[in-house]
């Protein structure tokens, strides 16, 4: 039940993105749209695989795509050059690490190490974004920003699944522990949906009138 719900939930942000295409065309939201599609397709393909090697490569490829798309989104959202530079450097290091990790490795069901490193990196990037928001706020109510909801989705999903991915290697494919992944995958997709449905209200921009009206 939950795995099916999790699979279907990735369609929800896709629908909302297309439904509110006009307001989601700006920024790097198309990256998240592509990610949701990739996630849905991977889940579908993964369900039909019986071979451990195939599963390993499909999961590894998805980790690769997932990291690339999330990093691209954060890269497009960041303003500070130093953070962007760190992102590029650490991405290069991650790709090298992931490739070296997979070469010559006996293919297993889940590449725990790469996924855990990806988790940690995405959490760090999300913190970069939030730090930037504190330093130079773009909107008075941070939760009025679409990017904020996307980043929160990353943060909640990746921090909740970090320990699961660390131990992922030792679980069976159908272990009950994967429920954690399904639950937070649904949460993540819900948050993406909120981001895509959110209307960018110009009245909520960072102005003095709003601040004093609020106090």
């Amino acid at each position: 039940m939950l795995p099916s719900l999790s699979r279907i939930s990735s369609i929800l942000p896709v629908i909302f993105f297309l439904l509110f295409l006009k307001r989601n065309r700006i920024g790097g939201f198309w990256v998240i749209f592509v990610y949701c599609l990739a996630s849905f397709v991977t889940d579908k393909v993964y369900g039909h695989l019986s071979n451990d090697t195939e599963r390993f490569y499909v999961y590894f490829s998805f980790t690769f795509v997932e990291y690339t798309l999330f990093t691209l989104f954060v890269y497009l959202s960041l303003k500070e050059a130093l953070f962007r530079y760190i992102l590029l450097l650490s991405s290069l290091a991650f790709y090298l690490f992931a490739v070296f990790n997979v070469i010559g490795k006996k293919s297993e069901g889940f590449d725990s190490l790469t996924a855990s490193v990806e988790d940690i990196l995405i959490i760090i990037y999300s913190i970069f974004f939030l730090y930037e928001q504190i330093k130079g706020p773009a909107a008075f109510f941070i939760y009025q920003s679409k990017s904020f909801w996307i980043i929160i989705a990353f943060l909640i999903y990746f921090s909740s699944t970090l320990f699961l991915f660390i131990y992922g290697k030792s679980f069976e494919k159908n272990s009950t522990y994967w429920v954690i992944n399904n639950i937070f995958d649904i949460v993540k997709n819900m948050l993406f949906t909120v981001a895509f449905a959110l209307k960018t209200n110009k009245k909520q921009q960072y102005t003095m009138e709003n601040t004093y009206a609020d106090t």
Binding site: L130, Q133, I134, P137, I142, L155, I156, S159, S160, L162
Partner: peptide, 21 residues
């Protein structure tokens, strides 16, 4: 681990919202 990370994340989000304001 999961509960701890989740609590930390939620704490961070709440802190960010209040601190930003």
């Amino acid at each position: 681990g999961t509960i701890g990370m989740l609590s930390l994340t939620i704490g961070l989000i709440v802190f960010i919202i209040f601190h930003q304001r």
